[in-house]
Design a binder for these strands. Structure first.
Lengths: 262, 262
DNA sequence: CGGCAACTTGACAATGCTCAACGCGGGTGG
DNA sequence: CCACCCGCGTTGAGCATTGTCAAGTTGCCG
């Protein structure tokens, strides 16, 4: 059975190996798993930085809003993700954070994080995680700036699929993606109605289906090609599918990019 | 007379105060100022991470390119800026870096950076700098996603103006901005021809002029309002006005959240 | 059964793109 | 020294991707 800490450890170890004491410290810090309702605000732009968020299950998002109400989602926090501890360097948030669907997560207080930062491996892993989230932001900028709506949505689903695969949440070419079409719209800067049209076109072309929060990718190769998706920015090591059931610890194997890029 | 180190110190101290030994260490690390030609590539996507860049004068940019040649600039590096040292956590760059106009900068090798990271104040300051660059990226996403070309370009110029003001490079409501219209296009994801049209409209409305690399803002208040610009994401402390041109205090350079959001 | 959120669908409008040409200035080579 | 050329800026005409508005359907949950 997977616990929050084990998922977090597995994810963070993709960035830097952790010593036993480091894993224990992480487990201690992330014991209290809380449940959050959908659309719950966890941090507000301009308000004090509340805590670092470590996601066990579900999606959250960072977003900014314009005075007129338009919302731009600037990143997703997915299972195994941890938000950037360096936010504590400033006294207030420059963006908001909210859950999308229901979420299980741990909140790490400032002191808790500071304790973790005494461990170099953990510091390095969290930094790596943050760098990847930056890279994702850069890719999104590319997406929103230079790709058609069709490419954009394809690309987003490729990314989500790859990230969920990295934490073992993909089965049978499908995964649960608790996003509404409006969420996708806010992330990719497309109108909800146009998201709808584009999703139907994706369905029609047989590349993927996304229905009742379930994403199924029928032709990953073709989808990645259509999207211009190259997973290298995610810095994923290939996930051993059997690693879900404990027993086989031999990860870190090759950086064998089977779901290859370019 | 301003040296690279003094500019760097002044900028970094906006994030965290530095002790004397820290300043000295920084000076030691950044003694060698190199000159770079315009359009010189300093780091290439996919290639090893060469060095951390500390800018003394001129603009550089981070960018990603699509196979078909389209380029998205994902951030500017401006005088006093330093690129993110955490890039060294990975073996290759996820984006490229190039100069725009001529640039004077120091290159800090991996070992040099590691030495600096022994100083907590420097580590904190560099982290703060990186967090702000992330925040800028988020704002750009908002820009490209949800603002009209007119707002976008206005917003970009507000940002550039505020950032240059923070390092004392604004005089008489004007500053040197070594960008071509094509550069602005690549940053804001607009066509060069449309950038041109928009610039002319900005000129016509009397908000600003941008000619031969010189930006003059005629009505900052109005421009910021038109752009929906709120400087708080830049986390600038008000620049001491006496540092260069006496008199006019920093208008929007807001530690004060009076130019509030929402 | 009612209500609300999410999803669909259609007609129309517009912002910004494409393509194409031309002006202008500064640097370089003959 | 002049002429050429290339990068950059400027302008125009037509077009298409995507936004807007509006209405209707589905489906879940109380």
């Amino acid at each position: 059975m997977t616990t929050l800490a084990s998922r977090l450890i597995a994810r963070l170890e993709q960035f830097s190996p952790l010593t036993l004491p480091e894993r224990i410290a992480l487990e201690d810090a992330a014991v209290t798993v809380r449940r959050f309702a959908p659309r719950e605000e966890l941090a507000r732009q301009g308000a004090p930085v509340p805590a670092v968020l470590a996601i066990y299950d579900g999606f959250a998002c960072r977003y900014r809003t314009l005075p007129d109400g338009r919302r731009q989602i600037v990143g997703f926090l997915m299972p195994g993700d941890i938000s950037d501890p360096r936010m504590f360097l400033f006294d207030c948030m420059d963006h908001s954070v909210a859950t999308l669907g229901p979420v299980e997560a741990a909140l790490l207080e400032r002191e808790s994080v500071q304790r973790l930062e005494n461990y170099p491996g953990l510091t390095r892993a969290m930094a790596g995680s943050a760098v990847v989230q930056d890279a994702i932001g850069r890719e999104w900028l590319m997406n929103v700036g230079h790709r058609s709506s069709f490419e954009r949505i394809s690309h987003l689903f490729c990314e989500i699929y790859a990230r969920l695969q990295a934490v073992g949440l993909v089965r049978e070419h499908g995964c649960d993606v608790p996003l509404t079409q409006a969420d996708i719209a806010d992330a990719m800067a497309i109108t909800p109605v146009h998201v709808n049209r584009t999703l139907m076109e994706l369905r029609r072309t047989g590349l993927l289906t996304f229905h009742s929060k379930r994403l199924v990718i029928h032709d990953l190769q073709a989808l990645a090609h259509a999207a211009g998706f190259d997973a290298s920015y995610l810095r994923l090591r290939a996930k051993d599918p059997s690693a879900n059931a404990p027993g086989r610890a031999a990860l870190l194997a090759g950086a064998s990019p089977d779901t290859d890029l370019r």
